[in-house]
Design a protein around this nucleic acid. Structure first.
Lengths: 342, 342
DNA sequence: ATAGTCCTTTGCAGCGCTGCAAAGCGCAAT
DNA sequence: ATTGCGCTTTGCAGCGCTGCAAAGGACTAT
């Protein structure tokens, strides 16, 4: 039992296969009479076009892949929820891949692998790959990079102004009267650009308020997750001079930090104020609700998809651009306390 | 500038294209000498196989699609994190799609659409589609269903024993001395099977402990999310006779409920004990940590992929089976209080 | 009546690969 | 030396569709 093909439909409708193709794709001008004949035949045979064959003939797959380090990180999950509908609206399916932040895996994906043919373009959130690594890649792959790397001119980059956002976050802590402010999430090594930009903002805010930076309050973590946040916070609380506020480099870190604080029987924000980063849904419901930096995720998703599709469509290389989405400071209970809660 | 093809490699290596194909795929027996020649040629030309062409020739795409209602629901994100590596290990790429629980969209996906050719099989977590709707589908599509529907014999179903798990959850609340136990998340309509099984467990536990069911304590919600959990809980607290414990049909609902309780200045579990369902990471870090039912997600992911791949590989229809993963009750602070915290 | 124009439909060739089965080849057994 | 066997390599045809450009047809203007 063979599958029904264009040819079968053509025969039944009494037209050429090419005409059936034109009807199916809404191509060219087809008279209503012909279209109707063809459509009737399609319905009668239960024909459906073979996308695989179309892909081969056109050389395009109609798929884009979104590569993130961790799918179970709410930030990425929320971002994906913006990307998928945006891409589908433009006729693309979305493939999702996660790399676990593994450098080799990430390198493979942007390299000249044979999977290349499976997608027309890639939206990529690197973690294990450094800025330099990003340049060693398949030059034919339309690429949009998310996060904190910057473009080398051959791909687009979409993100928010991390330094400014981090400065805002720490300034907020100063402005509610805190003086010993820690930072959790620094990554002082080549692939830690994201973290380093936030640390830069942390320093900038200190400068702004004329406060010296206590280097010992900048805590490094391997990842931006809850477990690392909790561990780092516990270490801070063990000190003789614990901080009275903490800037966490993600809401997950903040969530872990709050957990650690509660385990000591201390209170947020009375004993330690906490501000996070990303504005994941979690933070809007946790106890206390988490103050945070809210990147405009919908805008990021839309920009990334738009740029990528533009890049795919263009026959000549498109110069890479830097796109910045907006961000806002959202003050909640973890800095303002319950009374002033929004 | 054409892409390099098998033919080019064959020419350079001085063998037939078919032999190159054999080398590339590790097919058949090829002598070391030939293999080496071919591999050298491949390296020299930077050849990579065109997956699109292979797909057309073999009629398979090497992709499976995972369809979930919401990607930003941690439960699904965590599940996906199990599915993706399991599938990749078996040579399949994973496509992800989200339906927003929309009945039409879900129906289209399991129907005879042309996207069918893009994937060899589907792992599907239905929400908008009722049990009956599931039978109106492309019979050729290898399908594994997740969650709470049951198999009609043409597809596999992987889940946990929801009734037993729910009974466990509510029994736990009884066993810590609670007497007025509410349930949040019922969905008394055709597509609410998932919810209804949990309600069944809720009733079973009451029977087990010889307590009558107060129907007014069973609260329906449209979704299993934080917002609905908070709203429902707020309504319960507004009553003259609020419950002293709540069984929430997901951890997200529990998170929302706790949020509502805290907003009233009440405490968990002193005033109201809360138990959730799913064991998402969130619940392990929230304040208080959330008692829950822990389904064995890794097992579910693995079973689903294994069955699907078996189904794809089999030339004849495979009878559908019901697979049950284990579940465990995890008691945390939201029922036990801080002192006894694990 | 004839030529020119525009719109619809068609035919061809090929995208790059693999399934199938037969051809080729080297070696062992007789 | 001849036959037979088993492993390696090959050739053919075609997966189902679309790009391209030309053929066909209807209609208008002269």
């Amino acid at each position: 039992m063979r599958q029904t093909t264009l040819r079968d439909v053509a025969e039944l409708a009494g037209v050429s296969p090419r005409t059936v193709s034109n009807v199916v794709n809404g191509y060219a001008r087809v008279t209503d009479a012909t279209r109707e004949k063809v459509e009737r035949a399609i319905a009668q045979l239960g024909y459906r076009p073979n996308v695989l064959a179309r892909n081969l003939a056109t050389g395009r797959s109609g798929q884009i892949v979104v590569v993130v380090p961790y799918l179970d990180t709410p930030y990425f999950a929320e971002l994906l929820q913006g990307i998928i509908p945006a891409a589908r609206k433009l006729g693309y399916n979305v493939l999702v891949d996660q790399t676990d932040g593994d450098r080799d895996h990430e390198g493979e994906l942007i390299g000249r692998g044979s999977r290349r043919f499976l997608f027309d373009g890639m939206i990529f959130s690197p973690l294990g790959l450094s800025q330099e690594d990003l340049s060693v890649r398949d030059p034919d792959l339309p690429l949009v990079v998310l996060g904190e790397r910057s473009s080398d001119g051959t791909f687009d980059h979409v993100g928010i102004d991390d330094v400014a956002a981090s400065t805002d976050a720490v300034s907020h802590l100063f402005s509610i009267g805190r003086r010993r402010i820690a930072a959790i999430g620094d990554q002082p090594y080549p692939t830690g650009e994201a973290a380093q930009l936030r640390t830069q903002g942390y320093r900038a805010a200190h400068a702004l308020f004329g406060r010296p930076v206590d280097e010992s309050l900048i805590i490094s973590t391997a990842r931006f997750n809850r477990a690392d946040g909790a561990t780092a916070m516990a270490a801070l609380l063990d000190r003789a001079d614990p901080p009275d506020a903490v800037f966490c480099y993600s809401d997950l870190v903040a969530s872990g930090a709050i957990h650690a604080i509660h385990q000591r029987g201390l209170r947020v924000p009375e004993d330690v104020a906490i501000i996070g980063y990303d504005d994941i849904e979690d933070g809007r419901y946790s106890s206390p609700t988490i103050s945070t930096i809210q990147p405009d995720k919908k805008a990021i998703a839309q920009m990334a998809v738009d740029r990528l599709v533009k890049r795919i469509a263009s026959p000549s290389p498109v110069p890479g651009v830097e796109l910045r989405a907006e961000h806002r400071l959202i003050a909640r209970e973890s800095t303002l306390g319950v009374a002033t809660s929004s």
